[in-house]
Amino acid sequence: MRLRLPSGRTLVLALPFLWLSLFFLAPFLIVAKIALSEAALGIPPYAPVLRWTDEGVLTVVLNLGNLATLFSDPFYFDAYLRSLRVAAISGLLCLVIGYPMAYAIARAPEHRRNLLLMLVVLPFWTSFLLRVMAWIGLLADNGVINNLLLAAGVISQPIQLLYTDFALYAGIVYCYLPFMVLPLYATLSKFDPVLIEAAADLGARPWRAFLTITLPLSLPGIIAGFMLVFIPAVGEFVIPELLGGPGAQLIGRVLWMEFFTNRDWPMAAALAMVLLLLLVIPIAWFQHMQGRASR
């Protein structure tokens, strides 16, 4: 009998599956296991799910208490809601700022487009943390903005900019704007401007032509850009921690707190699980929309 070797195609397809199983599915199952276990004092700080009783019987001990707490304690619920709202508003702000940018780049003369795109991506060349820190220097009470306003005589007292919602949104929008601009640019650069002429020719004023032609045709880019901003922004920890106010208890901060301050791994794991589910829904919706657009 001859041994049938798997074909090259199977191998090529198997590799990413293997990768995902090893580095995504396995960690996910571990997190799920921790989320369903009880907190305990020790290393690791949770009780095993599978254990032997004294009689030598293997028992499974599942603890749904953490998940129950998540849904019953308004503290967590509020943190989720706030995170989703902050992410959604950040996504919209990025869209409003990023759309004109992407449009301008797509309409710029061809030889200048690469330079403009470079400028959009340029901030990525420095450390993320450094860039967020730089905003502290800008927004602090004795920071650049307050000093300028004081010197210009616009204000007589420094205004509170740092540790406010303004600072939080400024930080998120600043950091995630390229993720909005790039997919928008990709869609808008494929857009044929003769369609705008056709709309104008048929009686559409510029604003009307934008709403009826340009906007619907750039919808895939808008959705992609929004998702690329929204999804990481929901779980964002560094920006709210460094720039946001004390009231902004976002889910990323709560998770950090549970994990490192309270050392309640099962609770932190449960938080992470629910966060993942919250993100899977918009991603699935996004893919559904993409599939529909390409049909």
């Binding site: 002429e197 056709a198 009686g203 004023r205 619907p216 045709l217």
Partner: peptide
């Protein structure tokens, strides 16, 4: 008179049909 107010219509070489 801007294009959108002219009593003139055009058939474009590429047709410029709205794909959506």
């Amino acid at each position: 008179v801007p294009p959108y107010e002219r009593p003139v219509n055009m058939m474009f070489q590429s047709y410029a049909l709205f794909p959506h």
